[in-house]
Design a binder for these strands. Structure first.
Length: 278
DNA sequence: ATCCCGTCCTGGAGGC
DNA sequence: TGCCTCCAGGACGGGA
């Protein structure tokens, strides 16, 4: 499940495509391309130069010549991978991009087929609801913390649910949400509405810390995540709670618990993070 | 405005 | 060994 650190790692691993010109696009799974037909998508991309590869939350934004943006979201199992063109095409491949200057191909491979691709005029993201409503970048120095504390306080849902809301915490997903709550010593079921300014600052610092460390460790490979060159991440070895049900908390040795919050598996230390009361 | 739930989808795990 | 069921979950849309 790629989250912000994994998407950022993929972005960095594919920066060599900046300045290259797309020569050919093959869409093997038309449903992955939103708004446009496969044919129209391909024809609009062919002979178009990639200027920059950017990231917003969990979205990859390919800024193209002619003020066009190709927006890719990998959802659960999507992989953007650079392959030798001679390698047989995996049956889960949704799209293939070839380039004028390079041997090899960029392929979107996606077992569960949730990944999406949009091609829109630069800056016109209204049709991509999630991107249009995304919070500012959490790692940006000017993230408006007081404004988002106010937003958080209007919610009656548990903290864990709020952390997964991309309108509040762009790029946070299930793994980093649990890790951040552990570091901030906050219970996943605690009410977002009752979070003090001090608690919120501690949570924000913890979110930023886990995202930054996730990037430094090239992401978390829990299932099938790899970067654009096929490299696995390293942060799975540093997880404090996620996936550690029944194992000892690194701080107090209490067994880590797993509960379900907002339909998501949620791991926490019942001692370090307080009692799990609804 | 917020919240909860169903939906999309396939592979892997666990049960018998 | 093999079949069946269940689960994983990011984000969106609909209904409360």
């Amino acid at each position: 499940m790629p989250e912000l650190p994994e998407i950022e790692t993929i972005r960095r691993s594919l920066l060599f495509l900046e300045g290259k010109t797309i020569s050919r696009v093959e869409v093997l799974r038309p449903k992955s391309v939103r708004e446009l037909t496969a044919r129209e998508f391909a024809s609009r991309l062919e002979n178009r130069k990639i200027l920059t590869l950017e990231r917003r939350g969990k979205y990859l934004l390919w800024q193209l010549a002619g003020r066009q943006t190709m927006v890719v979201h990998l959802r659960m199992t999507g992989q953007l991978l650079w392959y030798p063109e001679t390698l047989p095409v995996d049956k889960h491949t949704a799209a293939i991009w070839s380039f004028q200057e390079l041997r090899g191909q960029l392929r979107l491979v996606d077992i569960r087929t949730f990944a999406t691709i949009n091609l829109v005029p630069q800056g016109e993201y209204q049709s991509i609801t999630g991107l249009a409503n995304l919070s500012p970048e959490l790692l940006a120095a000017d993230y408006p913390a007081p404004k988002f504390w106010q937003k958080l306080k209007r919610r009656r849902s548990p903290l864990k649910s709020a952390l997964l809301d991309q309108r509040l915490f762009a790029g946070v997903g299930n793994i980093y949400a649990d890790e951040a709550l552990f570091r901030a010593k906050l219970n996943p079921l605690a009410s977002a509405a009752e979070l003090s300014w001090q608690d919120y600052l501690r949570l924000l610092a913890a979110v930023r810390a886990v995202l930054t460390e996730g990037i430094e460790n090239h992401g978390t490979t829990f299932r099938n995540y790899v970067d654009g060159r096929g490299q696995k991440g390293g942060f799975q070895n540093k997880l404090a709670v996620y996936g550690r049900r029944g194992e000892a908390c690194h701080v107090c040795q209490t067994p880590i618990q797993r509960i379900v919050v907002a339909g998501r598996g949620t791991f926490f230390c019942p001692r370090c993070q307080g009692k799990a009361t609804a």
